[in-house]
C-alpha cells in the first residue's frame, strides 16, 4: 500500500517535471536551443503564484496570475535577448539563457531574500481511496496540471498557431516561404513556454517551498525528461516526466531521499541505451 502512496507522490512530482520538460522541448524544437532559463522561469511562477495566493487564497486566481506574470516575463526574455540573437548558434543561445537564468534568480533573491517562503494552505482532511490517503490539494493540483497540459496540446494540435509552430519546427525555411509569420510564432511559443513553467512553479511551491533556487534544482530532471521523451516530442516530455517522477519516488525506500534522483537518471540512461532517440523521438524537432 505504501508503494501506492509513492506512486501518487511520483505522479505529482512527474507532472511538475513534465510541465517544465514540455516547455524546454517546445523551445528546443522551434527556437532550436536548450533553454537553461526554464528552471528560473518556474521559480518566478512560484513567486508570482505565492503572492497571488496570499492575496486571494484562490487556486484559480493563483494559477492565472502566475501564468500571466511568467508568460510576460518569457515574452520579455524573447524580445530583449533571444530575438536579438536569432540566427546565432545554439551554444550562444544556451549561454545567453544561462545568463538570463542567473539574472532572474538574482532579482528574485534581492527582492524577496534567499529564505524559504511557503504557500499558507489550510489543512484539509484527506480522502481515503482504497486505503490510500489522497490530499484534496494534490487532486486539485493534478487537475490544474492536466487542464494546463490539455490546453497546451489543444493549442499545439488543434489551432492555427499550433500548426504553424509545428510547421516552423519541421522546416523553418519552408515556413517562411509559405507565409508563416516567424515573429508571431516565436512570441506565441514563448508565451506558451512561460505559461507551462508558471504552473509547474505553482505546483512545486505548493508541494514544497518557494526559494530562488527551486527552479535550478528541477532544471536537470526537466532536461533529462525532455531528452528521455525524445527531444522535440511534446508527448514524450510529459510521459518521461511522469516516468522519472514515479521512478524517483519508488526508489526512495531502497536508496533514500538523497539518491532518488540518481535512480531516475539510471532509468533514463538504461532506456536511452536501447532507444537513443528517447521514448517518442523521431527527429530533433516538435512534431
Amino acid at each position: 500500500m505504501s508503494y501506492l502512496v509513492l506512486v501518487q507522490n511520483g505522479i505529482a512530482q512527474g507532472l511538475i517535471i513534465g510541465l517544465a520538460a514540455l516547455s524546454i522541448t517546445l523551445v528546443f524544437g522551434i527556437a532550436r536551443f536548450p533553454n537553461a532559463a526554464a528552471g528560473d522561469m518556474l521559480t518566478f511562477g512560484g513567486y508570482a503564484g505565492l503572492f497571488a495566493f496570499s492575496a486571494t487564497h484562490s487556486l484559480l486566481a493563483t494559477g492565472l496570475a502566475a501564468i500571466a506574470a511568467t508568460a510576460l516575463l518569457s515574452l520579455l526574455m524573447y524580445y530583449a535577448v533571444f530575438r536579438r540573437l536569432a540566427g546565432r548558434s545554439a551554444v550562444s543561445l544556451l549561454v545567453a539563457s544561462i545568463g538570463v537564468a542567473f539574472m532572474i534568480r538574482a532579482v528574485l533573491g534581492v527582492s524577496f531574500g534567499h529564505g524559504q517562503l511557503v504557500y499558507e494552505i489550510e489543512l484539509t482532511r484527506p480522502y481515503i481511496v482504497g486505503g490510500v490517503r489522497v490530499s484534496p490539494l494534490d487532486l486539485k493540483l493534478a487537475l490544474i496540471a492536466f487542464v494546463t497540459l490539455a490546453a497546451a496540446f489543444g493549442v499545439l494540435y488543434m489551432t492555427s498557431i499550433g500548426r504553424q509552430m509545428r510547421a516552423v519546427a519541421d522546416n523553418s525555411d519552408l515556413a517562411r516561404v509559405s507565409g508563416i509569420r516567424p515573429q508571431r510564432v516565436m512570441a506565441s511559443l514563448w508565451l506558451l513556454a512561460g505559461a507551462l513553467t508558471a504552473i509547474a512553479g505553482v505546483m512545486l511551491g505548493m508541494k514544497t517551498i518557494v526559494a530562488p533556487e527551486i527552479g535550478w534544482e528541477i532544471l536537470l530532471p526537466a532536461f533529462a525528461a525532455a531528452i528521455f521523451g525524445g527531444i522535440g516530442s511534446p508527448i514524450g516530455a510529459v510521459a518521461a516526466g511522469l516516468i522519472l517522477g514515479v521512478a524517483q519516488e519508488l526508489s526512495t525506500p531502497l536508496v533514500g531521499f538523497t539518491y532518488k534522483i540518481a535512480v531516475s537518471f539510471a532509468v533514463m540512461c538504461a532506456v536511452l541505451v536501447f532507444r537513443p532517440r528517447g521514448l517518442f523521438g523521431k527527429a530533433e524537432a516538435v512534431r
Binding site: V155, S160, R163, A167, L174, S178, G179, R184, S188, L191
Partner: peptide, 22 residues
C-alpha cells in the same frame, strides 16, 4: 512539413487566421 499530415500542411499555410493569435 514532413510530420504534419497533408491536411495540416495545407492548413498551416492559410494566411491571417484568427487562431494565429493566442
Amino acid at each position: 512539413f514532413s510530420h504534419l499530415s497533408v491536411r495540416e500542411n495545407l492548413m498551416a499555410a492559410i494566411p491571417d487566421q484568427a487562431g494565429e493569435h493566442l
